[in-house]
Design a protein around this nucleic acid. Sequence first.
DNA 1: CTCATTTGAGTAATCGTTTACGCAACTATA
DNA 2: TATAGTTGCGTAAACGATTACTCAAATGAG
Lengths: 337, 337
Amino acid sequence: MKKQLSIKDIAKLSGVSTATVSRVLNDNGRFSKETREKVLSVVKEFGYSTNSVAKTLREQKSHTIGMIVPDISNEFFSSLITQIESYFFDKGISTIICNTNKDAEKEKAYLKSLDAKLVDGLICISGQEEIDETQLSRDIPIVCIDRQPKVSNNIAIVGSDHVDGGYKATKYLIDKDCKRILLLTKDNNTTSSNDRIDGYKKAIKEAHLQLDPDLVIRASSKKISKFETAQKSIEEVLSRDLEFDGIFATNDWLAYGAIQTLKKNQISVPEEVKVVGFDNDSISKYTTPSITTIHQEVNCIAEKAADILYQLMSKPGMQINEHYINVPTRLIERETT
Amino acid sequence: MKKQLSIKDIAKLSGVSTATVSRVLNDNGRFSKETREKVLSVVKEFGYSTNSVAKTLREQKSHTIGMIVPDISNEFFSSLITQIESYFFDKGISTIICNTNKDAEKEKAYLKSLDAKLVDGLICISGQEEIDETQLSRDIPIVCIDRQPKVSNNIAIVGSDHVDGGYKATKYLIDKDCKRILLLTKDNNTTSSNDRIDGYKKAIKEAHLQLDPDLVIRASSKKISKFETAQKSIEEVLSRDLEFDGIFATNDWLAYGAIQTLKKNQISVPEEVKVVGFDNDSISKYTTPSITTIHQEVNCIAEKAADILYQLMSKPGMQINEHYINVPTRLIERETT
DNA sequence: CTCATTTGAGTAATCGTTTACGCAACTATA
DNA sequence: TATAGTTGCGTAAACGATTACTCAAATGAG
């Protein structure tokens, strides 16, 4: 049965006080070279490592950030996570990733738990509603990605310019001579997809095309994958004999599902219908035909979010000068248009 | 500036001692109905929530488990994570997910950090080497998934029966009349892929086919995606004019990459070459042709792992009776065979 | 040699909980 | 009316670190 060694044990073994051991380990305060050697050798020999719970309690600082994410299996999210986590790791800060599975209750619970764990910062990625930072017991620095806070007191919001992304995608289809463009999206209510839809509408209006509500499909995605959601929606649309010559899908898996369904119905892409997706997910790159899509600059978003959060954490009381940081998107032309 | 309330504040506000507040909040010990009401109302009014760092320090129990995973963007892993996390969430235990990005140093650092955070249990998923549980300062219950511990003292190892999976895949190709089956795998050294290869060899030998080392491709996957890895390997194989009529790829993205590359080279699947993948990743289901694959029972693996860990956590000192829990795989027939 | 300064290290308070222990005030029993 | 048992709650000691205060000893300046 292993027993964790405490700083007291090390103090006793090195013949000094706990204060001295602490000073040596944190290289903070005064001690002679000899005591240093002595303490370090004891630490090494007996394999002591500091109890970070006690350290956190005393310092009121956990050297840890929390990250709330709706779905780690989403490629865009997992890239963000990986990069942000890596950024903070290099600074000696560890990351607690909380996967809420899009469950609002779970999100609340995790928010509370992170708060109680004294995390030094918070990154909140996407989600159905605003993030409710009001229930936090302390003023924790927060950065949102593709998400709004409830009271945007001193919270930065980083994300792609989704309106412009949606606009670019739609405009591109229009330029390719599409007249009736189907908008395919899931029925969840994230700010990012709403923005993309706004971009779509903007482009349609600007081109003086008819904004046909029938062409806007908010597909229910209960318990089924995005692919299947798209499949079902397109089958349904085809059965209604609704005419369309272009599809803007608000993510690549929807686009992919749509394309496969069109194929199955002997409708050729891009000849009869052109398709644009969103996210530049691997699937868009590797499928045949490869999917024209709107690329989000994940690296840039991750870096900006991490940078801002780190600054907020380092300088308590710092005020954010820019609340919204919009990162431009990029259209990637591929075979579906 | 918000200041976190402590139990002392609540005690003062309710006119009782901290002990009583604690007893009420944990419903543990004796107190009158009136004090209960009083304390709870104060708690509600002032929005107190307990500091779990202090609680953890005092209880020597964090109600938290750690999970070490090489790559959260892998679909199999992210399913495991989601399910295990959900299992423990329901039991009031939160999960810290650590993404090591396949970096051994990072893994060590995170292991140490989780140890220092006093996690009550540990799940270690896959990885290049054995998990080095010897550097832990306490006896933390551990369950490995597709992974070996360094000293398998009292550690359960859960996972698919990869040998059998590899065998099934290969045997199936053989039954479909393939004579020269290419094995396509990444050059990383995980136990699971090694096992799959063993299964391949077993099937080949059993059928008295020639075990041609040229047919075993361990593709280098440095800095490129699995798809590209497969692409490169197959191009290379084709340029060598190596003959083959079947491919067993140790995961679905490799299979997918291989299929697309064959197509590009006017080799038809399944007519000229039949392909079997592994994992039953979404891609295998949704691509055309859909990929025959070996399904891993993620739900079952996740549940078993979680169950065992939870038991070990609940009954300290409990001995594991079964060290290896092998979950059978299932072949899913699709269009590539 | 004297007095001021620097150096090294110990003492004890603190962070916010939980809980063993003790004790007064009730309640119940005979 | 004693006495035993129960109930409600407060006191204080942990948990394992950090750090503000001390203070003796060593060092330096004049």
